[in-house]
């Protein structure tokens, strides 16, 4: 059972600032972390390996400092890691990101399952997983909350939906994206940290991926960001205080006064 996990390094805060000139994220001075949903993806992969044997490969498209995140993945139990890094990849939207990841996965060749997080906490689109599946012509299951069984080239998983969950069977290889309900990620181990320190993490660029220059980075992005902004915070907010009962009572009174109920 060979598993590829897609990891993205994101700013370790939800209060990201956006450069009004370039409409890109201001990344200076913010500590990077592994996208939280991707830590569940990695844990799911490691557990599958522990159960069925095989190998876990972590991949990430990002700047050179994503190397640090990939080492952490190794310290947690990933066997190998590959960084996809190239100036040409800069400015990628989900389409170009997915294309780049798909090229890498094709180059890796041997895999049974690809696991993504449900979405990132910066880009937030949740599009990379399904786009990746589409490009690789593989089945895709989103919001997986449990991997029930893997058997004879088939997987049976539970996926969260609003009213409960669905059980889905799909042939492997496949792509899934996972939700946080799937597991509690482990902490690194001392032996893992030692392994991670000396691990060789290759960096693949556009050349190594034999990627079409027009499909990576800004050139390959269908999205043009016109403007990103936070909605204005309302100045007339009022915070109710007191016991829950009295707060509810005064809320109801206020809603009535304003003719809202």
């Amino acid at each position: 059972m060979d598993i590829i996990v897609c990891l993205k390094q994101v700013p370790g805060t939800t209060q990201v600032k956006i450069d009004p000139q370039t409409n890109t994220l201001v990344r200076q001075g913010i500590k990077n972390i592994t996208n939280p949903f991707d830590t569940y993806a990695l844990e799911a992969a490691i557990r599958l390996k522990e159960q069925y044997g095989g190998k876990v490969t972590a991949i990430s498209m990002g700047p050179p400092q994503a190397d640090e995140m990939l080492r952490e993945a190794i310290s947690l139990g990933a066997d190998e890691a590959i960084l996809l890094s190239d100036r040409a990849f800069a400015g990628a939207d989900t389409l170009a990101t997915s294309y780049t990841l798909a090229r890498a996965i094709t180059k890796i060749e041997k895999y049974d399952l690809i696991i993504c997080g449900r979405q990132t906490i910066d880009g937030d689109t949740g599009q990379v997983g399904p786009e990746l599946a589409e490009m690789l012509s593989l089945p895709f299951v989103a919001y997986v909350s449990k991997i029930e069984e893997i058997n004879n080239g088939q997987m049976r998983v539970q996926r969260m939906i609003e009213e409960g969950y669905e059980v889905i069977e799909a042939p492997l290889p496949a792509v899934i994206s996972v939700v946080k309900e799937i597991n509690v990620p482990r902490l690194p181990s001392l032996r893992g940290i030692t392994r991670a320190k000396s691990a060789v993490i290759p960096a693949w660029g556009a050349k190594e991926l034999d990627a079409d220059q027009d499909r990576v980075g800004l050139a390959g992005s269908a999205t043009r960001v016109i403007k990103i902004f936070f909605p204005q915070r309302g100045k007339r907010a009022e915070i109710l205080q007191g016991s829950p009962q009295s707060q509810v009572a005064s809320l109801v009174t206020k809603l009535r006064e304003n003719g809202l109920i």
């Binding site: 482990r186 902490l187 690194p188 181990s189 001392l190 032996r191 893992g192």
Partner: peptide
């Protein structure tokens, strides 16, 4: 169990016996 998974019980055991 978390301590075990993080290899903390290996700390004080010689390498010949799977320690650190």
């Amino acid at each position: 169990r978390d301590l075990a998974a993080s290899d903390m019980f290996r700390v004080f055991i010689p390498e010949e016996y799977d320690g650190l």
